[in-house]
Amino acid sequence: MSIAQNFVKHGKKIIAIGRNYDAHIKELGNPPNAEPWFFLKPTTSYLKNGGTVLIPEGVQMHHEIELGVVIGKDGKDIKREDWEQYVAGYALGIDMTARNFQQFVKAKSLPWTSSKGFDTFCPISEFIPKEGIKDPMNLVLSIKVNGEERQRGNTADMIYDIPELIRHCSSIMTLQEGDLILTGTPAGALGLIVHGDKISGRLETPEGELLANWDGDAANRAGGYVFTQKA
Rank of each mutant, 00 (worst) to 15 (best):
N100R: 01
Q102T: 05
Q102F: 06
Q103D: 14
Q103W: 00
F104Q: 05
F104C: 13
F104P: 04
F104I: 13
V105A: 04
V105Y: 05
V105G: 02
V105C: 05
A107P: 10
K108V: 14
K108Y: 00
S109N: 15
S109M: 15
S109G: 15
S109V: 13
S109H: 14
L110K: 01
P111R: 02
W112R: 04
S114D: 14
K116Y: 02
F118S: 12
P123M: 13
I124K: 04
S125E: 14
S125I: 13
S125A: 15
I128Q: 04
I128G: 02
I128A: 05
I128L: 11
P129V: 03
P129I: 06
P129E: 08
K130S: 06
K130Y: 02
E131K: 03
G132Q: 11
G132N: 14
K134W: 07
K134A: 15
K134T: 15
K134E: 15
D135T: 13
D135Q: 08
D135M: 08
N138F: 02
N138P: 02
L139N: 03
V140C: 11
V140S: 03
S142C: 05
I143K: 01
K144F: 02
K144T: 00
K144C: 09
K144D: 06
V145W: 00
G147W: 03
G147H: 02
G147F: 06
G147L: 07
E148M: 10
E149N: 03
R150D: 12
